[in-house]
Design a protein around this nucleic acid. Structure first.
Lengths: 338, 338
DNA sequence: TTGAAAGCGATACCAT
DNA sequence: ATGGTATCGCTTTCAA
């Protein structure tokens, strides 16, 4: 093992100079800095993590809590974990996993043992148990998602309400007067807040634009092709020609296949907007207008806020809502087609 | 923050006694131990992670490297991460995530900074780049999976070859003389070793039992319902009435639906064994005999081996293959049905 | 611009 | 059975 002493000796300087040269926390003459860097590289020096944690005020580790619920959509979840990890590494941070039902206990543990500098909370439930833990510890905690009671918390999330309104606005602009929301499985409205918020946005958007709205679920526990098919058939029977889709891939395909069965051309006879989807809709048979859910947006911001909180301990909690983006792909009919 | 000194003072003993009492590494009289535990609990004492890492020879952290490839099956992957995390926590260990393409760099980093005591390697590819990294570092590294060249490595995995043979044996015992292996998507045979090993086991089993074998893939890049349907139709046309299924959920459903279309009763007219599946086949319309892939089996063992390696640094690398288990559910025809 | 040295908070050895 | 203390390798103040 190479220590800072050996690097110092090799470079002919003191250990403090080595420390400062490598951390950049104090100006070091160009020449000695190069010597130190060369020595460090030659010896394969890497500061001891434990020593750094003990002496410094940073551990360079974030905890990431993720309560793997049964209804967790694995691919989306993984995308968030990956995005968080990449964002953290970009700032020299590693990610410690706090999985399973022990997430709450784990938070207290890593906080009081000073194992991590901050905690990032994924997959936030409306009445998340981690909320009260977060309030009880001094370790900065950032929620990626919005619980019902966010008092005193720092949260980062997409503005799902705005996303819902945005989707409706586009459809209303295209001249539609009746919209069907093809929503998440019913269980999602019980366990997640983002689905509710999106639905609320769609509802308020419809009200504001005087649109007739039908909101539906894509199944009970999971997305059910039969349910989706029935919902779409009913919508078409009502005369609805505009859909806001907020669910997983499969339902998109069912929707498109039903529309095709009816000989309806997406972007001409009917309009479809896919809202808050984490996957790539360009793989679908018909490209869809999307309001994408980009994990890196939330995760990058969460990491930055965490770091900022470490710099400035006095900065106060806040809710950061990221404005939704609309990505057109021709699936909403234009004025020319009316 | 509570330190060991404060606990010592509160309990009226020295810090070394506190350390020993809490770690149990030295006998401490029943009475003083209770006093110490009470004081620690009252003060909410939790040893400082950095100090422990520096002073002790353990960090109590495992690294878990996972290269999230495009074809990674997210739910299965998550199950392995969860199983590892649970096994680690059971021994007082936390799990540090090493994601993305930087997995190799990350391994060297956490090894030379002594951030972790051992590294667990998930989702092992046949020619995994992490193999050479593992050979170049001193940190004990356990592969959960088997690379082509495992020389000098410690690996834990299900014995997929035995699983393949087992599946064939059961079908042969039931009197079948022709079997179709409904395999993974083609890409899987390029990126994973376990699919190859299972196929090899099926092949050698078929040879040993003098069974006509047809091996197929369930699509090119991903499981493709059309391909699966065609494969099953072809098998039925050939007269095959026995299937070994080794792929994800969807293909199972397609298989069952085709069989139903033909009026074939699973467990009577046809036999089906699902091999090395991580998901719950009892959700299918027809329960299937399975040779389950239980993540906790591999992960628990991997963690135990890692800990053992830390105790006894001289213990030599080894490949640990876990024997497959056969779980009957009535989907293989019995003698009575012939 | 650089160096010396005081901690950081545990563990574990050496005493008693 | 318990206590004193050297030690781990770094960060950071204080001095020069």
């Amino acid at each position: 093992m190479t220590t800072i002493h050996q690097v110092a000796e090799a470079a002919g300087v003191s250990i403090s100079t080595v420390s400062y040269a490598l951390s950049g926390k104090r100006p070091v003459s160009e020449k000695t800095r190069r010597r130190i860097e060369e020595a460090a590289a030659a010896l394969g020096y890497m500061p001891d993590a434990g020593a750094r944690m003990l002496a410094g005020r940073r551990t360079h580790i974030f905890a990431l809590t993720e309560p793997l619920r049964a209804d967790t959509h694995a691919p989306t979840h993984m995308a968030f974990v990956l995005a968080t990890s990449i964002a953290a590494r970009r700032h020299g941070y590693d990610v410690l996993l706090l999985t399973d039902e022990q997430a709450s206990v784990g938070m207290s543990r890593v906080a009081s043992s000073r194992l991590v500098d901050a905690i990032l909370v994924l997959d936030v439930a409306p009445d998340d148990a981690r909320v009260e833990i977060a309030r009880s510890i001094r370790t900065p905690t950032i929620f990626i998602g919005l619980p019902d009671d966010a008092e005193g918390l720092t949260c980062v999330d997409i503005d799902f309400e705005a996303a819902g309104r945005l989707a409706v606005d586009r459809l209303a602009d295209a001249g539609h007067t009746a919209i069907t929301l093809l929503g998440q499985p019913a269980v999602s409205y019980r366990t997640s807040n983002f689905s509710r918020r999106l639905r609320r946005g769609v509802e308020s958007g419809a009200q504001a634009r005087d649109i007739a709205l039908e909101t539906t679920c894509s199944g009970e526990l999971a997305t059910d092709a039969g349910v989706v098919r029935a919902v779409v058939e009913a919508a078409l029977a009502r005369g609805d020609r505009a859909f806001v889709v907020h669910t997983v891939t499969d339902a998109h395909e069912v929707l498109l296949s039903v529309l095709a069965d009816h000989g309806l051309r997406v972007g001409h006879d009917v309009s479809v907007v896919s809202a808050a989807t984490a996957f790539d809709t360009s793989d679908l048979r018909t490209p869809l207008d999307t309001i994408p859910l980009v994990p890196s947006q939330s995760c990058d911001l969460a990491v930055e806020i965490a770091l900022h909180r470490l710099e400035d301990r006095t900065s106060s909690p806040r809710i950061h809502l990221i404005p939704p983006e609309y990505h057109p792909a021709g699936s909403v009919r234009t004025l020319a087609d009316r």
